[in-house]
Design a protein around this nucleic acid. Structure first.
Lengths: 341, 341
DNA sequence: CTGAAAGCGCTAACAG
DNA sequence: CTGTTAGCGCTTTCAG
């Protein structure tokens, strides 16, 4: 591995001069510059970023921590992050927390060890105590896909997303609806609120609990959904809202096995508008997040913070968009209405 | 940001002692160790990995370069890579080449600048001249999903994958088949070979050219497929083999628009067995790659190389597996046969 | 315009 | 068992 010293020796100049050439300083004689550059090219020399980082107190490193890259929602945001980071001369370290708060903290520590200039975080638990510790590290960190006090964030309005689905169900004539996901999911809050506004009570017996960020989200959703619908004395359900597309796919399988047709027997909506939803059978009605925007904006925010030294903590809230496809209909409710008339 | 010097001062010992404690050296008095550790915990101190890297000539960094994380094939391999790297105390830098050879080289250079201990590469072009340069960098690099001379690699046997599809088509009674993808794709070679073995000629007029690794693989496949099937005087085609699931999805859309039913009018097979293929309508017949295995084995290989200092260049070849779902059938061919009788 | 020298935070001999 | 010291490869005053 070539070092600057070596280049200096070869070119017959001092290390300082090589440094100047490498860093494009103006005050170097053209001839010398050329002589140095020749050796740089000859040896494919690249300055050691670690040494540089040490001296300049600036690592050109950014860190990303997310539950798991396998959820098809994340590749798109990572793609945008990578793109934007690269454009600004930063390299990115990627970590998976596996949806585990303690492990998330370990990842953060690792990033800190590398002295990343900033990090992008998709936190497992907004209440996790390590977030305070992160704060005290004084390293720029922006939160993705949710709002957390004390951090800048970029996310969509999840409550509004839930509301969108509720209103869609309502418009279709559904009254007996259910939610598949976590009890404290803001999507559920919005969903429930819109229902209540329409005079439709929505009790906890209508949420099918299912752990978010779970590695095998699809499978768990499949299981929980199947259990729920087989359960004696369960409330009637003509439309189900799943907390994400992965879970919706699981529910889809469950319905298939239960002999329930989507959307003829039960309507189904997902969330995220991942590639899966367009391709599923039937194509899933879902709520789109501007995935790449999220990644891009978050990265830009982070970079600005790094460069300016001060955070803009006002959360960026993007708007969700309902994408209606084939998995939701009101036909079944209307038919029932006519039959009972 | 705390430094070792600071901890040393606070604990009233020398920096060397702190270093010993941090690195778990045996020969430190328990009391002193505890005193130091107290401060380490107090300040959430983490040794600066860059400084360490400089001194130890070992960065604990691994690099990954792939065309784009958005192809659903990659998240799973990255997941495995991340997992395995973390287990071995390494952090990973992720780069996207965007399927561009020059950009790939830039990414490699960046990784080199960070003095990664090794890299995992999904090369854009096996012939790209920069691979030689990479070689001369003398930094361990293993290639994923293809074999390249001079590098260890882990991939499936793509020719065999192509053969599998050809034989499946043949078994179903198809004779008029086509390939959607790049002319020099080894899958095509295997596909063609199996066809030829069965006495079925397969000329270039039956390959629908479509750029691999393209950002918008699905869309391009859609376009090319549509063009091809609308073309006057095109050869008859009752079964199409797409180079990956993304492309197959594109073809699916094209067939939909053309009013051709899959599989009743034309059978369709993809490649990779991504989550998309199971969820598509109709569910795609495809060839499965052991995605996580690829990531895990490649990482292990790389780590061994790093640790031992010598490469095992014999390529690891994993076996592809045909996954038959709903998008392929022989019914249509049989019907035609009966009709002509 | 160029070189000498100090030092970023850490590890690793080497003394003691 | 502990401290002193010399760099790792680079940038950056400060002289010249």
């Amino acid at each position: 591995m070539a070092t600057m010293k070596e280049i200096a020796r070869l070119a017959g100049v001092s290390q300082a001069t090589v440094s100047r050439v490498i860093n494009g300083a103006e005050n170097v004689h053209p001839e010398i510059r050329e002589r140095v550059m020749r050796w740089v090219r000859e040896l494919d020399y690249q300055p050691n970023a670690n040494a540089r980082s040490l001296k300049q107190r600036r690592s050109n490193l950014l860190g990303v921590v997310l539950p798991g890259i396998s959820n098809p929602f994340f590749p798109d945001v990572v793609h945008a992050v990578l793109r934007e980071s690269y454009r600004h001369g930063r390299s990115v370290l990627l970590f998976e927390s596996g949806g585990n708060a303690y492990h998330e903290w370990r990842c953060i520590q690792r990033l800190y060890a590398h002295r990343v200039e900033g990090m992008l975080l998709v936190p497992v638990d907004p209440e996790a105590p390590h977030l305070k510790r992160l704060k005290s590290m004084e390293i720029p960190a922006v939160v993705l896909t949710q709002e957390i006090d004390g951090f800048p964030s970029v996310s969509i309005d999840h409550r509004e997303g839930g509301r969108l689905v509720a209103r869609h169900f309502l418009d279709l004539g559904h009254v007996d609806v259910a939610f598949l996901g976590a009890r404290r999911d803001p999507k559920l809050a919005g969903f429930r609120a819109a229902l209540l506004d329409a005079g439709i009570p929505f009790g906890d017996e209508r949420v099918i609990e299912c752990r978010a960020w779970h590695e095998e989200a699809t499978y768990e959703a499949y299981l929980r959904t199947k259990e729920f619908f087989q359960q004696a004395g369960r409330p009637p359900v003509s439309a189900l809202f799943a907390y994400n597309d992965l879970a919706a796919i699981g529910a889809l399988r469950a319905f298939e096995e239960l002999g329930l047709s989507v959307p003829d027997d039960v309507s189904l909506a997902g969330f995220d508008n991942t590639s899966l939803s367009a391709v599923a059978r039937p194509a899933l009605t879902t709520v789109a997040q501007p995935t790449q925007e999220i990644g891009r904006i978050a990265t830009d925010l982070l970079l600005e913070w790094i460069e300016s030294g001060e955070a803009d903590e006002s959360p960026v809230t993007l708007v969700p968009r309902l994408v209606v496809r084939e998995s939701t209909t009101g036909a079944m409710v209307r038919a029932a209405g006519e039959a009972s008339r």
